[in-house]
Design a protein around this nucleic acid. Structure first.
Lengths: 239, 239
DNA sequence: CGAAGCATTGAAGTGCGTCAACAATCGTGG
DNA sequence: CCACGATTGTTGACGCACTTCAATGCTTCG
């Protein structure tokens, strides 16, 4: 099950057999969490990291006045709170969007394997830096892209990220978010997210039906989004 | 001169005399860069990190269609491209907003000191995670705050960050950005940034004059921004 | 001293928000 | 398996925060 995580790591860099053993040995156990739960609450102390093995999670910040902004979506293979290893508490909530299976990586063991193996430390450091790169792309979207281009951009990003872990097929991918949750990613109201979705479909680019994103015109979609996948750092690196 | 960087690090955690020596020994030299230059261009390969000793820099992404979004502002003490240590190339530009003095930290030496000292690796990892936390707060601003609240939020953030490195006084702080650059941080047009600035002044909260931000009503400003500084992780940590 | 960038203002337009109603779907218990 | 309430999705009418366009004065600096 944790293989999906190793698959993600290995997509970008070499992980030796020794390192794989270290990672597998550091995992404390896995469990299932119901949908729509707050998994980590903003401000809570953390003493372990969480590998998402299946399902979707979001990271979001709320204003006191109630508005919510999702800052990143997480899918199988991702560590959803790795930044908590150094930060110790998070500045945002982590929530389950679907039922999720997660594995636990206690900070204690993460400390051991990253102290004993500087390369592994850099591999995980790299992962948090990719999260930051995704945040920057979202800031670009929120600040400069129109609603439709922003939505297109999100669908492109997810397509790339999901294909790395084998969660796409020729047609598209499972996308279990409600329109409300989607709108919270895009800084839109539900109403406008709904109309934007219809416009994407009307243009023959994407359709979202039965929790499945069907990509009808990939290059048209990427063009509308002005999508440049380099921020995902999916090519091989010497870390 | 590099003391300002150590000051920033020590604000959050203990740096031993040995570690200070390691850091000082890793610095290759310092130099001055003119204002309004692209310091790192998106996609360029990096082989060193850059400590900003004085002046201001920005990190920004441009869309092919020309719009620019600034994703973070950097001030004295910050490392402006530390994520490049693991990413190797950046997904955005780093630009000087003023004349800047920088010190160079070759990746080679960063590799030595972080491999030899896992705590130091975590200290720098922590710094990149704080950058990510700042990105998330900006995403919240861009997605959910109104123009005026967003601008207030930025002024609050900078006040906190600058006070850590002793760049504030009782009145406020030097703020060398033009209104165009400010507007690029906030996802606004220059025209609207100008009007928003006037509204902040009219409400008696902040005024920006002669490249100086004068904070007239700090708690009023923080209230308008719904500002919660915890995302800056300025309290002491056990890293 | 002139040119170029920067700040400011006004008028008009628009993308997205707000409000409100209703339809479709889902989940749960009887 | 149906009933029914709750959640999710959809639509229309209207409003407004912010953009766009355009003009003018103000700085800055070679």
């Amino acid at each position: 099950m944790i293989t999906v995580h190793l698959k993600k790591l290995r997509h970008r860099t070499d992980i030796s057999a020794d390192e794989e053993r270290a990672i597998r040995g550091a995992v404390a156990g896995s469990r299932t969490i119901a949908a729509d739960e707050i998994f980590v609450r903003s401000g809570d102390e953390l003493n372990s990291a969480t590998i998402l093995l299946s399902g979707w999670m979001s990271r979001s910040k709320d204003l006191p006045s109630g508005e919510r902004q999702v800052t990143e979506l997480h899918v199988a293979g991702d560590i959803v709170d790795l930044h908590g290893f150094t930060l110790k508490r998070l500045d945002h909530d982590v929530m389950t969007l679907t039922e999720c299976v997660v594995a636990t990586l206690p900070h204690e063991r993460l400390l051991e394997i990253t102290s004993g193996n500087p390369h592994l430390a850099r591999v995980y450091w790299f992962q948090t830096n990719v999260d930051a790169a995704i945040h920057r792309e979202w800031a670009l979207s929120l600040g400069q892209r129109s609603a439709i281009s922003r939505m297109a951009s999100l669908f492109c990003e997810l397509h790339m990220r999901l294909s790395v872990v084998g969660r796409t097929n020729g047609e598209g991918y499972e996308f279990p978010l409600t329109q409300r949750e989607l709108s919270e990613c895009l800084g839109l109201t539900v109403v406008h997210a709904n109309r934007t979705l219809q416009e994407l479909r009307r243009r023959g680019l994407v359709e979202l039906e039965n929790r499945f994103v069907r990509i009808l015109d990939r290059s048209g979609l990427e063009g509308l989004a002005e999508f440049d996948p380099s921020y995902l750092y999916l090519d091989r690196q010497r870390i």
